[in-house]
Amino acid sequence: MVGTTFEEIAAGLYSGRPDAFVSSRKARAAEVDAELAPRILALRKPSIAAWVVNVFAQERAGQLGEALELARELREAQDDLDASALAKLGRERRALTRKLAQAAGELAAARGERVTASTLEAVEQSISAAFYDPAAAAAVASGRLSRALDPSATPSDIRDAVAGDVPELISASAPPADELQARRARREAERAIASAEKEQTSAERELTQREAAWTELRARRDVLTEHVSELEAQLARARTDLVEVEREIPEAERGHTDAAARAGAAADALDRARKAKDAL
């Protein structure tokens, strides 16, 4: 017979039609031995919100399991995050909670159950509790909630909201110390890699800028060197011309003196000639 343990029977009843819970509970109690029957008859009818969570946990166990595993990893990592990263993590966690609650509501609606806004809110609160508390995660994943959970629920509240035991899930929610240490080491290594990649990107950017500046300076140096060479050649030619001019100046001065004396003598001779004419 399918579902012969108390937990299996409870899971089947808690995901069945809510309006048929009482009759189904009575029928299942009649099918089991006298020791198990009283426990089944003592099962409380789940609230609609709890029923929605149970249906989702059982029919979308893979999707819920991945979300709860991610939530566990985030809980372990959040101690190492800064304020900005924690705020981003909070937004992502709320978005995922709403997405899962909406999917659970749609699954319940497909079964013909009317899901009100308040019911959907209680479903979202239960999933949120599972994201924050390993015990609540085990309770939600069991698919045997009798009532919705609250993120502020105590361990006693959570225990009271679940039909039967969930030892395998509770133990799995608390990894061994060496596993936690290994995960912490991996996170440290990932942060070191991220920091090194960031430093490499910054260094490569600076190298590109420095190379561009270096190339520009070398080109400018080449232009100035050529210009200096041209100016030096012009200066050498000017100095040669200066030497030649200075060598010619004494002879030019002598010629100037002789020409001036000749011009003075000629002027005197002309003056005498004019006076001699006037005396006739």
Score class of each variant (00 low, 15 high):
53 V>P: 11
122 A>R: 03
91 R>H: 02
118 S>K: 10
74 L>T: 08
56 F>P: 03
107 L>S: 09
124 E>H: 03
60 R>Q: 15
73 E>A: 13
81 L>E: 09
130 A>L: 04
66 E>P: 05
103 A>L: 10
94 R>F: 02
57 A>I: 10
84 S>V: 14
44 R>W: 04
99 K>Q: 15
116 T>A: 15
104 A>C: 05
128 S>E: 05
121 E>V: 04
73 E>T: 11
47 S>I: 09
124 E>K: 00
48 I>P: 13
86 L>T: 02
130 A>C: 08
123 V>S: 03
130 A>K: 02
77 A>E: 14
128 S>G: 04
99 K>W: 02
87 A>F: 03
71 A>V: 05
53 V>F: 12
84 S>H: 07
58 Q>T: 12
46 P>A: 10
61 A>M: 08
128 S>W: 02
126 S>G: 06
62 G>Y: 13
79 D>T: 12
115 V>S: 10
118 S>E: 15
110 A>I: 07
51 W>H: 14
118 S>N: 12
125 Q>S: 11
123 V>R: 02
113 E>I: 15
54 N>A: 13
117 A>I: 11
124 E>F: 01
111 R>C: 08
64 L>G: 04
88 K>G: 06
109 A>C: 11
99 K>T: 08
70 L>Q: 13
85 A>K: 00
98 R>Q: 12
113 E>C: 12
74 L>A: 14
101 A>I: 01
108 A>C: 13
88 K>T: 12
46 P>I: 09
98 R>S: 11
110 A>N: 13
103 A>N: 07
79 D>M: 12
95 A>K: 06
81 L>M: 15
89 L>G: 04
103 A>P: 03
123 V>M: 06
102 Q>I: 06
57 A>T: 07
87 A>Q: 02
51 W>D: 10
105 G>V: 01
121 E>H: 04
45 K>A: 15
50 A>C: 14
50 A>Q: 10
78 Q>V: 10
116 T>H: 11
58 Q>M: 12
94 R>S: 03
129 A>K: 00
111 R>S: 09
110 A>V: 12
107 L>M: 13
56 F>M: 11
89 L>W: 01
87 A>E: 01
54 N>Y: 10
121 E>Q: 08
68 L>D: 01
51 W>Y: 12
79 D>P: 05
126 S>P: 04
126 S>R: 01
73 E>F: 13
66 E>M: 14
80 D>A: 09
113 E>M: 14
63 Q>D: 14
117 A>R: 11
120 L>K: 05
91 R>V: 03
115 V>A: 10
98 R>Y: 03
60 R>W: 11
82 D>Q: 08
67 A>M: 05
116 T>D: 13
126 S>N: 07
123 V>P: 01
76 E>D: 14
74 L>H: 07
65 G>P: 08
89 L>S: 02
115 V>M: 08
100 L>I: 06
